[in-house]
């Protein structure tokens, strides 16, 4: 049986990695956000088997599954920008729409081309 760490402890561990990342960022005065440094640290400590997957897996799955909940409060800030969307709404949607279609088309074609050259059937 795989021993797993209770989810609360896993969350504390993930928070610690974020805080260590923030600490490193402040200490070295980096432009990269602390949480991204924390992510890199967790990735490499997992790769080096310093941190084991069962120590963080459930906690990470929980945070990623409820990602939306954590970002609802920020997005709700849109209430302050009603006039902006009244005025420039269609332009904003055009920029995002055209760029999203471009990204998807080009990424899809490049990877598809690369894979077919490698001769991967599906």
């Amino acid at each position: 049986m795989k021993r797993t760490v209770p989810i609360m402890l896993q969350l504390i561990l993930l928070v610690s990695f974020a805080e260590i990342g923030n600490g490193i960022q402040a200490w070295l005065g980096l432009v990269i956000p602390g949480s991204l440094i924390g992510m890199a640290l967790l990735f490499f400590t997992l790769k080096l088997h310093i941190v084991r997957l069962p120590w963080v897996e459930q906690g990470a799955n929980f945070l990623l599954a409820e990602l939306l909940l954590f970002f609802v409060p920020s997005a709700t800030g849109i209430v302050q920008y009603g006039p902006l969307f009244d005025h420039d709404g269609w332009k904003i949607v055009t920029v995002i729409g055209v760029s999203t279609i471009l990204v998807m088309t080009i990424t899809g074609l490049i990877v598809d081309f690369g894979m077919r050259r490698k001769g991967v059937p599906e």
């Binding site: 990695f17 949480s35 924390g38 997992l46």
Partner: peptide, 22 residues
């Protein structure tokens, strides 16, 4: 109150290391 929840985006970003590793 909202910022208390938004704060969790930080450990959630760290959590991306797990699928990346897997």
């Amino acid at each position: 109150g909202g910022k208390v929840m938004a704060w969790w985006l930080q450990p959630a970003t760290v959590a991306f290391a797990v699928p990346l590793y897997k």
